[in-house]
Nucleic acid binder design. Structure first.
Length: 655
RNA sequence: GCCGGUGUGGCGCAGCUGGUAGCGCAGGCGACUUGUAAUCGUCAGGUCGUGGGUUCGAGUCCCACCACCGGCUCCA
């Protein structure tokens, strides 16, 4: 039989019974760290019989191997919790990105607190030290029900498969024919598909991270369980690396950078989710918006401007009051009318379209506005600038003739990607979200819209996946996600094809044949919201924004007081280029000034002294460089800086 | 909204079992005039998230609320 080693090499050995036997013959010392094998595309226990000619060894340090040991660690955690709190009901405990969790209901509705984590962890270490094997058992459904008679969540999982006629609930080890379970010593049994590491002794590099509430089956109307999150790795070093990465990610946290760089804050006096932007932060916003605005104007958009509140009747017509009342700020009564702060800009843009009769010659009509909207987000979901209650959308509504839809979407997606690239982002993925259960409209309309979106994605060439049932209630959509500098995924742009609002507002245009027809409408936010996009940029760049977006682009530090005149001359020269220049006067030591300015993440810190005055040079400290360049001719620096002062124009595909 | 946690001067922190708040940085002032990541001195600043309560006495205990952090749910 053929054995594929973790490093990808392979070798031929005589057929053997199971993974353990394979290891005995080729890795007697265990140096490969194999925790499971893959046979016929299925991952299985080392002890399971091998039915096949090819066996892949799965190392603990591989992604699949980590999944196995995280899952096993979750089991050990459940065992520990059941030992410490007899009578606990346990639900599910999967491996997740970087770790695992397990959901429990403690007897008497008791809840975990942070001290409990230490107790559980201690118990887990005992279980690991006692080297308990994970032994797989196969049972009939009936036996399974008996085995977990006192575990309601397990019973529900087993019964769910039978009742709903699902083929199987694979992740939990239940199929139509039977259930699988794993048993450790001490009598702990868990319903589980496996595979597991052979014994608890293979675990150890783990840490319990936090406790949280989580609804059973993700349904907030059902029990709220106590979820314990942990992380587990193949070695202590890997665990420490991970904890270190978490620390590094914390340094990029836009909420921290926002405070450190004096960009914005959230005054409690104003209210949760309502930021104020300080001068530097407001400047960055302005630069983002200004570039976006100019790019839109250069690409066939027209501006719109609309108020912040509107009568309830508008949102009755649009359907927002029917669908999203709970997330709208409450109404205000004035002169017998009821007004709401706007949660979306679309109804108002529609009114602009409808202000007079439209000809096919005007289409596509692209309206663009930085529209500030208010949404009453539930208190637990607020998250810095990434999730706020008052936000500004870079919002556009495009009205097209049905025949123009596909081409317009392709053009639009090209524009979106070009804009994101201009901000230095390059790693995109899209989701094509289809009709949800709760939705309105005719099936054929949804089909037309979904096809057009898919066409646009194909033309754009960005990778995409289908998100079935994830669309808005009125429209299918493309959500563009991006990966930042450390690989995290963020949702940004959204493109939605809306066939409902044109109908609800009875929109029309006069076509070339003099017939009145209904336009299609495309909703599109590109940044998503200015606030959220600001947050993403801060985290992506770890606060070191590109020169064109930096509040201060150049700081000049004269070596001593006598050099301030020359420093001023340099500043005048740079400001003439349009650069934002700050002066760092000589009343503290040069080293201290450089340190402060570098911590402010200013792209260039120039040092000018007697030598520079005599030679017409500057000392250049580029952000990110570990040593300064001295005696750089001012002309040379000016040429370099000029190239970075403004964003590059959008590279949009031709129409 | 739900679960767990946190809330001390602008920022980062200390304050044990309840006895009327302390440090560093930042800030003001003064001196130093400096060639590449923290010059020295000095001054000022908080009533301890907010409101109740227990107590002779509360930053320290209890209750409610607010905000924030980590999750769950949600995200038109």
């Amino acid at each position: 039989m053929l054995v594929v080693l973790p490093d990808g090499s392979s070798r031929e050995i005589p057929a053997t019974a199971n993974g353990e036997a394979v290891l005995r013959s080729i890795d007697a010392t265990g140096s490969l760290g194999v925790v499971a094998v893959v046979v016929g595309g299925r991952i299985q226990d080392l002890s399971a019989p091998i039915a096949g000619e090819k066996v892949e060894l799965v190392a603990a340090s591989s992604e699949r191997g980590r999944e196995v040991l995280r899952h096993s660690t979750a089991h050990v955690m459940a065992q520990a919790v059941l030992a410490l709190w007899p009578g606990t009901k346990f639900a599910i405990g999967p491996a997740v990105a970087d770790g695992f969790y397990y959901d429990f209901r403690l007897p008497g509705g008791e809840r975990f607190n942070e001290e409990d984590l230490a107790r559980i962890e201690e118990k887990m270490r005992e279980i690991v030290a006692s080297d308990q094997p994970f032994e797989r058992e196969e049972h009939s459904i009936k036996e399974g029900l008996a085995l977990f008679a006192d575990q309601p969540y397990k019973l529900e999982i087993i019964q769910g498969v039978r009742a709903q006629g699902e083929t199987e609930d694979e992740s939990e080890g239940v199929s139509v024919t039977g259930v699988s379970a794993y048993r450790n010593s001490e009598g702990f049994v868990d319903l589980c598909r496996g595979p597991h590491v052979p014994s608890t002794a293979r675990l150890g590099a783990f840490k319990l991270m936090r406790v949280a509430g989580a609804y059973w089956r993700g349904d907030e109307k059902r029990d709220q369980l106590q979820r314990v999150y942990g992380t587990a790795w193949e070695s202590q070093e890997a665990l420490e690396d991970y904890l270190h990465r978490l620390e590094e990610a914390e340094k990029r946290d836009h909420r921290k950078l926002g405070a450190d760089l004096d960009l914005f804050h959230f005054p409690p006096e104003i209210g949760g989710g309502l930021p104020v932007f300080h001068p530097k932060g407001a400047l960055v916003r302005h630069l983002m918006e200004d570039f976006s605005m100019r790019s839109h104007l250069a690409n066939g958009y027209q501006l719109a401007w609309t108020p912040h509140i509107a009568k309830s009747t508008l949102y009755e017509t649009s359907g927002h009051l029917g669908w999203y009342k709970d997330n709208m700020y409450p109404p205000m009564e004035m002169e017998g009318a009821t007004y709401y702060p706007k949660p979306m800009n679309c109804p108002m843009h529609i009114l602009i379209y409808r202000s007079h009769q439209r000809s096919y010659r005007e289409l596509p009509m692209r309206l663009f506005e930085f529209g500030t909207v208010y949404r009453f987000e539930r208190s637990g979901v607020l998250h810095g600038l990434a999730r706020v209650r008052g936000l500004t959308q870079d919002d556009s509504h495009i009205f097209v003739a049905p025949s123009q839809l596909a081409a317009e979407l392709a053009r639009l997606l090209g524009f979106v990607i070009a804009m994101l690239r201009a901000f230095g982002l390059s790693d995109f993925e899209a989701e094509l979200a289809t009709r949800p259960e709760k939705s309105v409209g005719a099936a054929e309309d949804w089909e037309v819209a979904t096809d057009a979106l898919e066409h646009a994605l194909k033309v754009s060439g960005i990778p995409y996946v289908w998100a079935e049932g994830e669309g808005a209630f009125y429209a299918p959509k493309i959500d563009v996600h991006l990966r930042d500098a450390i690989g995290r995924r963020w949702q940004v742009s959204t493109l939605q094809v809306d066939l409902q609002l044109p109908q609800l507002f009875d929109l029309e245009f006069v076509d070339a044949d003099n017939q009145r027809r209904r336009p299609y409408m495309v909703h599109r936010a590109l940044f998503g919201s200015v606030e959220r996009f600001f947050a993403i940029l801060l985290e992506h760049y770890a606060g070191a924004l590109p020169t064109w977006l930096s509040p201060t682009q150049v700081a000049i530090a004269p070596v001593k007081e006598a050099n301030e005149g020359y420093a001023d001359q340099v500043a005048v020269r740079l400001r003439a280029l349009g650069a934002r220049v700050a002066m760092a006067p000589s009343n503290e030591p040069l080293g201290a000034r450089i340190r402060r300015l570098k911590m402010e993440k200013i792209p260039y810190v120039l040092v000018v002294g007697d030598r520079d005055l005599a030679a017409g040079t500057v000392g250049v400290n580029s952000r990110g460089a570990d040593r300064p360049e001295t005696d750089v001719a001012l002309d040379v620096f000016v040429a370099r800086l000029s190239a970075e002062l403004a964003p590059s124009p959008l590279e949009v595909p031709l129409d």
